[in-house]
Design a protein around this nucleic acid. Structure first.
Length: 487
DNA sequence: CGCCGATTCAC
DNA sequence: TGAATCGGC
């Protein structure tokens, strides 16, 4: 029997798709027996452990990946532990000839991948990584002053000079056969599903993890929503957002597929979708790219203020009761409660509402943005290591290209402006089902509603308090930088 | 990817 | 009067 050659390993990470997967395509081309592996790494330093909602999604996505590979006569091997130990052990166990993966961009992840690449090369194993999950890899663009970008618009303009990106790859027609006898964990043993069955039920009703689910969402978005995207994307009741964020997070669909999918060729003739809609959608993809650019250059973005002057901000002791009310959606501010309940029920929140609830927590409750970021990390199915902290810092004013500190959202006005009919609030706050639209965003002013709390804070007074605190921080910063603070 | 109060200007 | 505009926060 002729030797089929040393086995090839394709290591799947945040790229749980068969189409437009350069590592998988490269692995298939070698023609040697193929092992496709996913490693649950909850131990390596600098890699953030998944939140609860992300674990739920990962379970579904891995399940879907395994089934998709099975259709190609392949399988998904599951291993757990520090990725470096696991990968090198697997390579040794198989006597692997090649190892392929698609690149990651977080600090801890890059360190792990570099160490593994070195270890494999020491063994004489060929190893190659690919660009698959970002249109513009962070090291490829700099400002004219040779600095990383700190402002979105020039970043995105620079990124767009690299467009169009490469064409997405088709899924491999066929995959080489697997290697017999390779041990795999059981997905159920990883216990990724939440122990609270009510939570899992809400997530299950809202989402279909996996590549097929991602493609279905994208097709529906292009066919039904994209034409109204620019005009209505800020209205949480409008249902024109793509809801692709968790699919992108886990790499079930790639930005290359999205870019080409909304190009004139991708949309096909006769769709009559304006360029303004397409540009708006792509700019949201651009914000994701920008967040990863920021995280690449500041790997501890989830912990450290992007603007150091915010390190001196005098966060008061956390009011636990208020924090619990925020998490549970019982603040008495309708648009805030609707958002927080949407989050708990579905693992998702409309982007406009994310800004409102974040502003309320940071400015009105004066809670450190990290605490809100951590809650989103745990409860969002799309919790993204770059987008989440970058967006929280944007709202806090501590981030790159951030909203100025004095921009305090008024949740009543925001509700009246973006949920004028009150439909979003009614959808998630049934206590307010019978309140007329004109009153629903400030229900307490009309005497309140039985069973629904009044506002836990006074919006005007807390706004003033926030402005004073930020002003104080700014003055302290000037004092300390001028060196007179010791006099 | 604001808010708010003051001012201006149309009616 | 009240909608639009402007500037400080």
């Amino acid at each position: 029997m002729a030797s089929l050659g040393k086995p090839t390993i394709v290591w799947l990470r945040d790229d749980l798709r068969l189409a437009d997967n350069p590592a998988l395509t490269a692995g298939a081309r070698i023609g040697a027996p193929l092992v496709v592996v996913y490693v649950l790494d909850e131990m390596s330093e600098g890699i953030r452990r998944l939140g609860g909602a992300s674990k739920w999604w990962l379970h579904g996505s891995l399940d879907a990946s395994g089934k998709a590979l099975a259709k190609h006569g392949q399988r998904l091997v599951l291993r757990h532990g520090p990725a470096q130990d696991v990968l090198l052990k697997l390579a040794d166990e198989l006597g692997a000839g090649h190892v392929f993966w698609n690149r990651r961009y977080g600090g801890g992840e890059r360190a792990v991948d570099a160490a593994i690449k070195a270890g494999l090369k020491d063994r004489g194993i060929a190893v190659e990584s690919f660009q698959a999950n970002l249109l513009c890899e962070p090291w490829t663009i700099r400002t004219k002053a040779d600095q990383p970008f700190r402002v979105f618009t020039p970043f995105w303009n620079a990124c767009r000079t690299q467009m169009p990106p490469r064409e997405p790859l088709p899924a491999p027609d066929e995959l080489p056969s697997p290697v017999d006898g390779v041990g795999s964990d059981s997905l159920a043993d990883w216990k990724l599903l939440p122990t609270r069955p009510d939570w899992a039920g809400g997530l299950r009703d809202s989402w279909t993890p996996g590549e097929d689910g991602a493609q279905a969402r994208f097709q529906a978005f292009r066919a039904e929503k994209l034409k109204d995207y620019a005009a209505h994307r800020d209205e949480p009741a409008a249902d024109v957002s793509s809801r692709l964020s968790p699919h992108l997070r886990f790499g079930e669909i790639s930005p290359f597929q999205l870019w080409h999918g909304v190009s004139p060729e991708g949309l096909g003739d006769g769709t009559k979708i304006s360029q303004a809609n397409v540009d708006k959608f792509l700019s949201e993809i651009g914000w994701r790219e920008f967040s990863w650019h920021l995280l690449f250059h500041q790997p501890d973005l989830a912990m450290r203020n992007f603007q150091p002057r915010f390190d001196a901000f005098p966060w008061p002791a956390v009011n636990e009761a208020a924090l619990v009310a925020w998490r549970k959606g019982r603040t008495g501010i309708p648009i805030v409660d609707a958002g927080m309940r949407e989050l708990w029920k579905t693992g998702f929140m409309h982007n406009r509402v994310r800004m409102i609830v974040a502003s309320f927590l940071i400015k009105n409750l004066m809670v450190d943005w990290r605490i809100g970021e951590a809650w989103f990390w745990d409860t969002l199915v799309d919790a993204d290591a770059a987008n989440n902290p970058a967006s929280w810092q944007w709202v806090a004013g501590s981030g790159a290209d951030a909203a100025p500190y004095f921009r305090v959202f008024n949740p009543v006005l925001q509700g009246e402006k973006f949920d004028a009919a009150g439909d979003y609030v009614r959808r998630f706050v049934p206590e307010l089902a019978d309140v007329p639209a004109k009153q629903i965003h400030a229900a307490w002013k009309a005497g309140g509603v039985p069973g629904y709390p009044g506002p836990i804070v006074d919006l005007g007074a807390t706004r003033e308090r926030a402005l004073r605190a930020f002003q104080q921080m700014r003055e302290d910063d000037v004092d300390s930088s001028s060196g007179f603070d010791d006099d």
